[in-house]
Amino acid sequence: MIKDFVKSRLRSQEIRRRQIPAFAATGGTGDGAVYYLAPDNDSPSGGVRVIYRHVDLLNSLGIPAKVVHAADGFRCSWFPNTTPVVAAGRVSLGARDVLVVPEWYGPGLGGLPEGPRIVIFNQRAYDTYDLIPYEETGPGAPYAGIPGLAALLAVSDDNVDLLRYAFPGVPVHLTRNVIDPSVFHLGGPERPRRISFVGHRRSAEREQLLHILRSRGVLDGWDVVAIAGKTELETAEIMRNTAIFLSFSEREGFGLPPAEAMACGAYVVGYPGLAGREFFVPGLCSPVADQDLLAFARAVEQACIRYDKEPQTLIELGAAASARVLARYDTENLRTDLRTFYSTLL
Results as ranks from 00 to 15, higher is better:
Val34Glu: 01
Leu10Ile: 11
Arg11Leu: 05
Ile63Thr: 12
Ala87Asp: 11
Arg18Ser: 07
Phe74Ile: 02
Thr26Ile: 05
Asp97Leu: 03
Ala95Thr: 12
Tyr35Phe: 15
Val100Gln: 00
Thr29Arg: 14
Gly46Ser: 04
Arg17Gln: 14
Asp56Glu: 15
Pro64Ser: 09
Tyr36His: 13
Ile51Gln: 05
Ile15Ser: 02
Ala22Val: 14
Gly62Thr: 04
Ser60Val: 12
Arg53His: 08
Ala87Ser: 15
Pro80Gly: 07
Asp31Ile: 11
Gly27Cys: 09
Thr29Met: 13
Val55Arg: 04
Val68His: 07
Pro64Gln: 07
Val34Gln: 00
Ala24Thr: 06
Val48Ala: 08
Gly73Phe: 01
Pro84Thr: 05
Asp31Glu: 15
Val86Asn: 01
Arg11Phe: 01
Gly62Trp: 03
Pro39Ser: 07
Gly27Pro: 03
Val86Ala: 00
Tyr36Arg: 05
Ala87Tyr: 11
Ser45Cys: 12
Glu103His: 13
Pro39Asp: 03
Arg96Thr: 09
Gly73Ile: 11
Ser92Phe: 02
Val67Phe: 09
Asn41Tyr: 14
Val98Arg: 07
Asp97Ala: 06
Thr29Val: 12
Asp56Cys: 05
Ala24Ser: 15
Arg18Val: 15
Trp78Arg: 03
Ser43Lys: 14
Arg9Glu: 12
Gly89Val: 10
Tyr52Pro: 04
Lys7Asn: 09
Gly27Arg: 06
Val50Pro: 00
Tyr35Met: 06
Val50Glu: 04
Glu14Val: 06
Thr29Phe: 11
Pro39Cys: 06
Gly30Met: 08
Gln19Trp: 02
Ala70Pro: 03
Gly73Thr: 11
Gly32Ser: 09
Ile51Phe: 12
Leu58Ala: 01
Ala88Thr: 07
Arg16Lys: 14
Ala24Lys: 15
Ile51Arg: 09
Val55Ala: 04
Leu93His: 04
Arg96Phe: 05
Ser77Ile: 01
Asn81Cys: 12
Arg90Tyr: 05
Ala88Pro: 10
Arg9Lys: 13
Ser92Val: 07
Ser43Pro: 00
Thr26Trp: 05
Arg90Pro: 08
Cys76Trp: 00
Ala87Gly: 14
Thr29Ala: 13
Leu37Lys: 02
Pro44Trp: 02
Ala87Asn: 09
Val91Cys: 12
Cys76Ile: 11
Leu61Asn: 11
Ala70Thr: 14
Asn81Pro: 04
Phe79Cys: 05
Ala24Cys: 10
Val48Glu: 08
Pro80Lys: 08
Asn81Met: 07
Ala24Gln: 13
Gly47Ser: 04
Val68Met: 03
Ala65Asn: 05
Ala38Asp: 04
Leu61Tyr: 01
Ala33Arg: 09
Ala70Gln: 13
Tyr35Arg: 10
Val98Pro: 06
Gln13Trp: 10
Thr26Met: 03
Gly32Asn: 02
Gly46Glu: 03
Leu58Trp: 02
Cys76Asn: 13
Tyr36Thr: 01
Leu93Val: 08
Ser77Leu: 03
Asp40Phe: 08
Val91Ser: 10
Gly89Phe: 07
Arg96Trp: 03
Gly46Ile: 01
Asn81Leu: 07
Arg49Pro: 00
Ala22Asn: 07
Thr83Gln: 04
Gly27Met: 10
Ile15Met: 10
Gln19Met: 09
Lys66Asp: 00
Ser8Lys: 14
Ala33Ile: 05
Ala71Cys: 08
Val48Arg: 00
Gly30Ala: 12
Asp97Phe: 04
Phe79Asn: 11
Arg16Asp: 14
